[in-house]
């Protein structure tokens, strides 16, 4: 099964009590597939052990990219958490593990 890593690259940024993860497709076909399958619900499920959510998705078709904002990261955000990755910077890599089953309807 394809994972996001096969179609796109990602970068995470700390926003205090939330984290943003951008996902940039390598090509237009990848962008269209991500648009169908990398839904807010799927991202929220992958991040459930780390963040209460909700998750917001912003589409940037001109850049072939999406920006995901994941709310309420557990532990009180960047400056107060005891987590090893206090900035959530490695969360881009978690985004890249998300499977894309490919059975979503076209369009």
């Amino acid at each position: 099964m394809l994972i996001v890593h096969d179609l796109a690259h990602a970068r995470a940024g700390d926003k205090g009590h939330s984290v943003n993860v951008s996902v940039t497709a390598y090509d237009e076909a990848g962008y269209e597939r991500l648009k169908r399958e990398l839904t807010e619900a799927r991202v929220a499920a992958a991040f459930a052990p780390l963040a209460d959510g909700p998750v917001r998705r912003y589409a940037l078709p001109g850049l072939g990219a999406f920006n995901f904002v994941i709310e309420r990261v557990q532990g009180g955000g960047v400056t107060a958490t005891g987590a090893l990755d206090i900035h959530g910077k490695s969360l881009s890599s978690l985004m890249l593990t998300i499977p894309l089953p490919g059975n979503e309807p076209e369009g």
Partner: peptide
């Protein structure tokens, strides 16, 4: 474009 896109969206909430 790839390196610039990653940086453009870095630490961004609503891109609008």
């Amino acid at each position: 474009a790839a390196t610039c896109t990653e940086q453009l969206l870095y630490e961004v909430d609503d891109p609008g």
